[in-house]
Design a protein around this nucleic acid. Structure first.
Length: 868
RNA sequence: GCCGCCGUAGCUCAGUGGUAGAGCGCAUCCUUGGUAAGGCUGAGGUCGGCAGUUCAAUCCUGCCCGGCGGCACCA
């Protein structure tokens, strides 16, 4: 018996697929379409196990759907702009472009080795001028529609990467890439009006039925829509419209319209205790201009807030400005105006009214400064005469009281009534507020998509005409210094104004790389098109039916892509309003970590593991030095717990590696890479080959064994359902079990009926393993004389009648405990089953001395006798 | 603090309102011309805890405990 040799068979089949162009996507309108896409990789130059898992999953779906008769689009590209290339340029003096394309070439080879069913003819990189030139074209369309604008704004500045970051790219006050503490700077910045789409982006989440709830919740939280009331307080001793210069004597200059606040709880207005503004609020600034103590307090607030953790635990502090405002429902009721450190300038209006009884922050503040606390929401069952709020605000449901015209209403009705009243007084209106901010897309980097506008001394900011596109990078960029190399370039930025023809300078900011990845899926529909998106092809292929990638993009990439899709739909370039109909977020590949006693990380391949009973010990292979086995963590260079895919391919073959990352955990969960695990997959590959190799080449014509047939059809059903449900591990588990069954019915010396049943079983099996281990599947298919290649073979069908057993074994319980079993024909009626049970002597013995109260028969499943 | 996920064999994980499973590991044995390999057999589980619903709960419901992730002074 010859051993299976992946080193020979795997390249052979890859060449065979390429020779017939097996994965070429054709928009065949006679078939249903299926677009499978995995998040495209950044070309770091090295394939890692996370890629192997991600692309193997997509490949399972793509191969499966193709076998099911879909015309499948499964493309691949490169998210190729970005800082690593510039960093490499600075560190090693290489050209970012050359560095990037070399990485792409290396990674393409590695990806191809994985045997993915990809249409490589559509490949592109976002740094191809053919791609980013098209991006510049739709940029101009969005600019024209007013969706892109330029404004002076306070931005997140990453001092290490020397660039601006979007809010989404700041994690715990640090840059998402560099980890450097982010600074605030004022800069002229390009922004996209994602907030125009905040409502749609929230509402349409409900249409994304095949997205994980978790991701939808994360996006919903990120957008942070809240409905409430914006309204103005009038200053107490100033008539509206009158400006009084003295801050202490009335409303300060510039606030003649009053002070606007935002609240989601207008129902609690009668519980108001004070009005507060953020330290950065214009009112606070106005007060501080004349009040040194206020200025000192504001300064103190600014110093305090460094990290999220500190903000969270920071003590509430305030400064009484001495200003007073009138309560909107009772002009004789005056409320003090405080500057408070817990109020955020960039949410709502930067000013609030505080209702301490029903908001914990307000309560903490009022207790500290001894301000009144009056409850206005009465919890169900509480006594209005005695209900009090101590140190815990009441935020639950209830009935409004102590509130004049709102008394007796529930919370929602009271909110509506309060908003009506305020609107009637012309003091404000119901309002929706979002946490989401516009997307700042300017980056002060050269290795990105140039923004196609010029700055003209006469005409200001002027967009280029489309005929002037693409705006390509100069070929001789001088990297190697920090900051923007496009800005430093001696000639590139000097050009003429398309409007007046006079001298002008090009915009030297480039676009955030998340712009590049916000529409690439649409370009794949026709990457050769002259327009950014070919409408007919996009209409056929989009939306992406199944998108697969990491959970880390739950907010950033997936939100931006949804926004750009909607914006491009509004410019008429796309018909879909959501890019990804189905989303799957796969888990990471993890590995145990190993350290020397001095804490130095050690790579897995240098480690030897010894197992004694149930304890495992690790030693350094070279000298037997004992090592510490650490936590199981995501594979990373810093912890040195990586396993290089190519080394695994070399030893076990690609199929075993693919099989392992798919089999050992549910796809959405992390999978722990272990040597034992991949060896198990390798053994499976070999045992599968043994079964095919031992089957006689001459076909058996006898009637197939019924039991093995049924098992085969059950297997087809189970594996089909497992793939449909993204339960790859579960499908593979069924294949393992079935292989054990084949081994229990070996070809050697088998009866003709078994051989015939094995024939059908192997034919199905080869096709069922094809999505997971495509090379092995081809070799097996060829061995049993299958027609053509598996890639072109239809998915096996199961006969539903054969997925059920003719005879069922029913456990018989007495009072819920198993006391025996009987055999009954499938579908036997309860009354007949009852007779069988009663006729069974063993069960009769168990029932001796007991009175039968009730017999429960669940058809084809179980019998339970309740007796006493 | 809020939201979500998870807790089943030594490890990593399937699974189901009705007989508790796989891979790896472990043990015994066989093979010693598949040989730094292959095979047989087996041990091992109050299905995180408590209560409820049910004829029957690992599964459904509630509460609690433990772990992980996201958001977080968002008015």
């Amino acid at each position: 018996m010859a051993r299976y040799n992946p080193k020979e068979t795997e390249p052979k089949w890859r060449e065979a697929w390429t020779a017939v162009d097996a994965f070429h996507a054709v928009a065949d309108r006679s078939k249903p379409k299926y677009y499978v896409l995995e998040m495209f990789p950044y070309p770091s130059g090295r394939l890692h196990m996370g890629h192997v898992r991600n692309y193997s999953m997509g490949d399972v779906i793509a191969r499966y759907k193709r076998a099911r008769g879909f015309s499948v689009l499964h493309p691949m590209g490169w998210d190729a702009f970005g800082l690593p290339a510039e960093n490499a340029a600075m560190e090693r003096g290489v050209d970012p472009k050359a560095w990037t394309y070399e990485n792409i070439a290396r990674m393409r080879d590695e990806l191809k080795q994985l045997g993915l069913s990809i249409d490589w003819s559509r490949e592109f990189a976002t740094c191809d001028v053919e791609y980013y030139g098209k991006q510049q074209a739709w940029f101009l369309d969005l600019f024209e529609r007013g969706l892109i604008y330029r404004k002076e704004s306070t931005v997140n500045w990453d001092p290490v990467d020397q660039t601006v970051l979007a809010n989404e790219q700041v994690v715990d006050g640090r840059g998402w890439r560099s980890g450097a503490l982010v600074e605030k700077r004022k800069l002229n910045q390009w922004s996209m009006r994602i907030t125009d789409y905040a409502d749609q982006l929230t509402d349409d989440l409900a249409t994304l039925a095949r997205w994980p709830d978790k991701v939808r919740v994360m996006q919903e939280n990120w957008i942070g829509r809240s409905k409430g009331l914006k309204f103005r307080f009038h200053f107490a001793n100033t008539r509206a419209g009158e400006e009084v210069e003295d801050a202490r004597a009335g409303g300060p200059a510039g606030f003649s319209d009053g002070l606007e606040v935002y609240t989601t709880r207008p129902d609690t207005l009668y519980g108001a205790s004070f009005v507060g503004v953020a330290a950065d609020h214009p009112l606070a600034q106005a007060v501080a201009a004349k009040d040194p103590a206020a200025a000192a307090f504001i300064e103190e607030c600014r110093r305090g807030a460094a990290t999220e953790a500190q903000i969270e635990t920071a003590e509430k502090k305030g400064y009484d400005t001495g200003l007073r405002v009138k309560h909107p429902f009772d002009p004789s009721w005056e409320l003090p105006v405080w500057i408070a450190n817990f109020i955020l300038m960039d949410y709502g209006t930067g000013a609030i009214f505080a209702c301490p009884a029903h908001d914990q922050r307000d309560l903490d503040f009022c207790r500290k400064y001894d301000l009144p606390v009056k409850p206005v929401v009465l919890p169900p069952g509480a006594d209005p005469a005695t209900f009090e709020v101590g140190d815990e605000a009441y935020t639950g449901p209830g009935v409004i009281y102590n509130s004049q015209f709102l008394d007796g209403l529930d919370i929602e009705a009271a909110k509506a009534a309060a908003i009506d009243k305020i609107e009637g007084q012309d003091d404000g209106e119901g309002a929706t507020v979002f946490r989401l901010r516009d997307w700042g897309v300017s980056r002060q980097r050269a290795w990105g998509c140039p923004i196609p506008v010029v700055h003209c001394p006469t005409d200001g900011v002027v967009p280029l005409p489309k005929a002037a596109l693409p705006v390509a990078h100069p070929v001789d960029i001088e990297f190697g210094k920090s900051g923007n190399a496009l800005e430093r370039h001696p000639t590139w930025k000097h050009t003429t104004c398309p409007k007046c023809g006079g001298p002008a300078t090009r915009e030297t900011d480039t676009l955030d790389t998340f712009v590049d990845s916000s529409w690439y899926f649409a370009r794949f529909a026709n990457p050769w098109a002259a327009e950014p998106i070919d409408k007919a092809d996009a209409d056929y292929w989009l939306p992406v039916d199944q998108y697969i990638g990491g959970i880390e993009h739950a907010v950033l990439h997936l939100l931006y892509a949804r926004f750009i899709t909607k914006a491009l739909a509004d410019t008429g370039q796309l018909s879909v309003r959501e890019p990804f109909a189905g989303l799957f977020t796969q888990g990471m590949v993890t590995h145990e970590t190993y350290r020397r006693q001095n804490g130095e990380w050690i790579e897995p391949k240098e480690v030897e593991i010894v197992t004694e009973g149930n304890t495992r010990r690790a030693t350094l292979g070279a000298n037997g030095e004992p090592l510490v086995i650490g936590d199981i963590e995501k594979m990373s260079k810093s912890k040195k717990n990586t396993v290089a895919p190519e080394e695994i391919f070399d030893v076990y073959g690609v199929d075993a590696a693919r099989l392992f990352v798919l089999s050992d955990s549910p796809a959405e969960r992390d999978v722990q890479w272990t040597t034992g695990g991949v060896q198990g997959s390798w053994r499976f590959v070999n045992r599968v080959w043994d079964e095919f190799d031992s089957q006689p080449e001459t076909a058996s014509t006898s009637e197939p064994d019924a039991e093995l047939r049924r098992a085969t059809h059950k297997l087809i059903k189970q594996v089909t359902e497992a793939i449909d449900g993204f339960r790859f591990n579960s499908g593979i588990a069924r294949l393992y079990e079935f292989l054990n069954l084949l081994k229990a019915n070996p070809a050697k010396g088998a009866a003709p009926a078994i051989l015939a049943a094995r024939q059908e079983a192997l034919s199905a099996f080869a096709r069922l393993i094809a999505p997971f281990t495509p090379h092995l599947a081809e070799e097996c298919w060829a061995r049993i004389g299958g027609e053509g290649m598996v890639v072109a073979a239809p998915w096996p069908n199961f006969d539903p009648a054969l997925t059920e057993d003719a005879t069922k074994v029913l456990p018989v319980q007495v009072n819920g405990k198993r006391r025996g079993e009987i055999s009954a024909p499938a579908g036997a009626e309860p009354a007949d089953v009852e007779k069988l049970v009663m006729a069974d002597p063993e069960i009769a013995a168990k029932l001796e001395g007991l009175t039968i109260r009730k017999i429960i028969v669940v058809k084809d499943r179980i019998v339970n006798i309740v007796a006493a």
